[in-house]
Design a binder for these strands. Structure first.
Lengths: 207, 207, 207, 207
DNA sequence: ACAGTCGGGACACCCCGTTTGT
DNA sequence: ACAAACGGGGTGTCCCGACTGT
């Protein structure tokens, strides 16, 4: 299964081309930002002409939106990898954290959510809205796991699911950012260790 | 006192103009990124013509570097506000966190460190290096506070100063980013609460 | 027949436009020099917009090179006009000189070879090289005629073909230059007379 | 003795500066042409600021005119070198030709007369006029020598002084141009030989 | 008076995202 | 899907006037 949005069967040649454009564009936008990505560069990357690109997208902004959906879908999938065969909320969260730290999304350039959110936080309301919604859904995903863990007494009952999800996401994304700036992945490891210990604390009954 | 880098006395008219350009540019770059900021927009913001701007900077990149120094200087100062009159490492850290959550730096558009780091993480090596160095010094600042707290037994001796600093920065910057994307400041409050509790734990003697 | 380089059949609309640009540019470059010719002026002359011009040339320098090829091709053709139906080396040379003196090349502004050579003799190595090669081929053309004349005893055997070609070209180009500066064509006539007498001398057997 | 136009005694510091500017400018204009020479480059070459230059000249065009006068004065002096101690019209002409071929004027970049004349032959009427007048005077100089040679029977009486001067100048300037384009000085030598033989012919009585 | 700073507009070349014919 | 053209905007540089301190 692909990322939901994308096609599965009956893909014509045009759809295939569109998908190829999206994949190349996703990488470019994720690495260079919206303004930093030019259609000329995309032409070279795809081997198409401008007209060939504009057949599939009415504007650069729409292309960027589709590219974001693809990139974020890929990133989300990578982060959820293996969760469906993991039992228990705490192990699932730990797995998710490990995925975040270790697995590189198929789209290089860092977390599409952060990149797009920051890149478009002035102007470009379409992208901004997509990033907002993606973040919201992503948090809900964590909340769902945490709530399930609380239901079956795996996680302390005085936990606030929303708050825990927020802390996990903040720490991870912040660590990813530090890693990118500093050029090392030390921050990711440190935060992983910290979060794992935090989860262990939550697993213990309240004192 | 200004941010150290900037002038105080003997400012000729030209220096004054240069400073005005930097301040406007810092805001623009912080909000729109490097590629998204055009000199034309800066012309309008400053009321100067191209020639008037290019007298003071040889290129957009140099201007961006100066603007970053200014913006980051302002942000750091805001985050360290009041720390010199606060006694104790733990109160200092809490004050720093509160500053981060509550005080808006004089340069709108989010944390210059994050913005610049992510914006320039491909290409633009000059900015990238400045962001890297700024992050490094910022972390060292926290490490210094933490180490001092451990020396006078205020903080548990089994704490790793580097790791704690990394966790604090990651969480805060990640929370800021979530706030920007979601449009609320809920994430900042949550992470503040979380970090304060963490610090309280570290203040207790090891069990 | 056009100037060899240019197209004759299968010209698409784009090629036609490109040719139009080249022709206008050739005149501008020949009259105003490389630095003195602006793209804006070319826009006006061609009726195209910036984008329409830059589709066909990646840079001003490339355009200048194409324009030189065109202008020189036209000039050379004008100078060789009628030579193919002229019998004998001496008459051919006289015809060539007359062409030089009387026929205006289709590209106004003087001899493209001289203009380009002098205009680009510092910097602009591409143009400089084209001018150098053009001059070399031009001289060879004269040498070929002279050598043929010597072979069939039309020209004295103690003639140095290279030297004679050099003298002819120097005198003609120098005269053209004097004409341009002084605003009259007296110099051209004088040099024509001089060269014709020189050729007559060479036609006579050595004393 | 300097070139007449320039100062000899009572030069204040300002005049000295002005002269320094002129010398640098003369070289730049001679090498790069009017449009290709920027005041910024001249600032760097002279070590002065814009204001420092514009104190002495009201515009770039006036500066170019003064620079031309200087460059041409220097070139003319070089070409006339030693003529005052040479006896006889034919030896004087040969000396002049030799000077042209061998002596490099103190201002690099080729013959200022040709450069300026061609560079300014559209637009820039001031420069154009100066070049025209300089060429006229230069030819008169040769005519004077030739006429004197005819008066004392050194040169054949059926010679047209104007025509001979035109031929000499055309050949020499044309040869200089060929040398510059081809990068060798072969053309200059060839034309020198040719002109010397021509002068020898004129020295013999008419047959 | 005069060297030098500062700023002003205009324009350079180049490239952008977009639309159109086909 | 492409080739062509369109406008407009990008950064950078130009030449020059006006102001500033000496």
């Amino acid at each position: 299964m692909k990322f939901g949005i994308q096609f599965e069967a009956g893909m014509s040649k045009g759809d295939d081309t569109k998908q190829r454009i999206i994949e190349k564009a996703a990488e470019m936008f994720n690495k260079k930002g919206y303004e930093g990505s030019s259609l000329s560069a995309l032409m070279e990357a795809t081997g198409l002409q401008k007209g060939g690109i504009y057949r599939h997208f009415t504007s650069k902004e729409e292309l960027a939106a589709d590219a974001f959906d693809y990139a974020w879908g890929a990133a989300r999938e990578a982060r959820l990898y293996g969760l469906d065969v993991t039992a228990g909320a705490i192990p699932q969260l730990k797995q998710l954290i490990a995925n975040f730290v270790d697995r590189r999304g198929p789209v290089p350039g860092g977390c599409p959510l952060v990149n797009t959110g920051i890149d478009s936080d002035d102007g470009n309301p379409i992208l901004r809205e997509r990033a907002r919604k993606a973040l919201c859904e992503w948090k809900e995903r964590l909340v769902t796991i945490i709530t399930a863990g609380m239901k079956n007494a795996e996680i302390r009952s005085d936990t606030e699911p929303e708050d825990l999800a927020t802390v996990v996401i903040s720490s991870l994304e912040g660590a990813l950012m530090m890693s990118r700036i500093s050029g090392t992945n030390a921050a990711r490891r440190v935060v992983q260790k910290h979060l794992n210990r935090l989860l262990d604390d939550l697993a213990r009954p309240a004192a």
